[in-house]
């Protein structure tokens, strides 16, 4: 990691990430995460798939997420994914990914574009049915979908039956956190 004299703030504007438990659920602000979008260039789809496989980067199917170490990924749109990796080892994630794909893919740093809140606990659907139209009861455990929560466009990435990540625009982190807290209090 580069040595420099600037001190980062969390998306909620503090030195340390927030966490809170409400009823059976725990909300956590996750900062140890680097993100980059990866989009295959036209006609290079096969090549991107091979290079991703060689680099250990999963490229999940539509509306799905796939975990991995160090790389996980979730689907954004046709031939485009969000690649996840630990921030500590992949702070400049784009610079790390670029040489792996050359000019076969377009790669864009997305780390600080998003805030990630993890929500874990039993019966998450009771909370999320008050937030968005995703049917968590019927959804698979590796769902990844864009949705709207209180006017905010978000990605919902399910990690397990009882755990999911909500990605929202970093600038509205406080509004999204408030929406999640309010729904949890309402549901439990």
């Amino acid at each position: 990691m580069a040595e420099h004299r600037l001190k980062p703030l969390t998306p909620l504007g503090h030195d340390r990430p927030e966490t809170v438990s409400i009823g059976p659920v725990t909300l956590t602000e996750v900062v140890d995460q680097a993100l980059a979008s990866l989009a295959a260039r036209q006609g290079r789809e096969e090549e991107v798939a091979q290079k991703a496989k060689a680099a250990g980067i999963p490229l999940p199917a539509a509306a799905r997420a796939e975990p991995g170490t160090p790389y996980g990924a979730f689907w954004l749109s046709e031939q485009s994914w969000m690649v996840e990796a630990p921030y500590a080892s992949h702070e400049d994630i784009r610079a790390i990914l670029l040489p792996l794909f050359g000019d076969a893919a377009s790669i864009t740093e997305q780390t600080d574009a998003w805030v990630r809140f993890d929500v874990s606990g039993s019966d998450l659907s009771a909370m999320f049915e008050r937030l968005c139209n995703v049917d968590l009861r019927a959804a698979p455990d590796n769902l990844a979908t864009r949705t709207v929560i209180e006017h905010m466009g978000c990605y919902l990435v399910r990690r397990a039956r009882d755990r999911l990540s909500v990605f929202g625009a970093r600038s509205s982190a406080a509004a999204l956190w408030h929406a999640l807290e309010t729904a949890a209090h309402s549901a439990y």
């Binding site: 539509a62 954004l76 749109s77 046709e78 979908t145 864009r146 709207v148 466009g153």
Partner: peptide, 12 residues
């Protein structure tokens, strides 16, 4: 036949 944009989805 009409155009719809999936803005809160996959942007298609």
């Amino acid at each position: 036949r009409e155009l719809w944009y999936h803005e809160q989805g996959d942007r298609s």
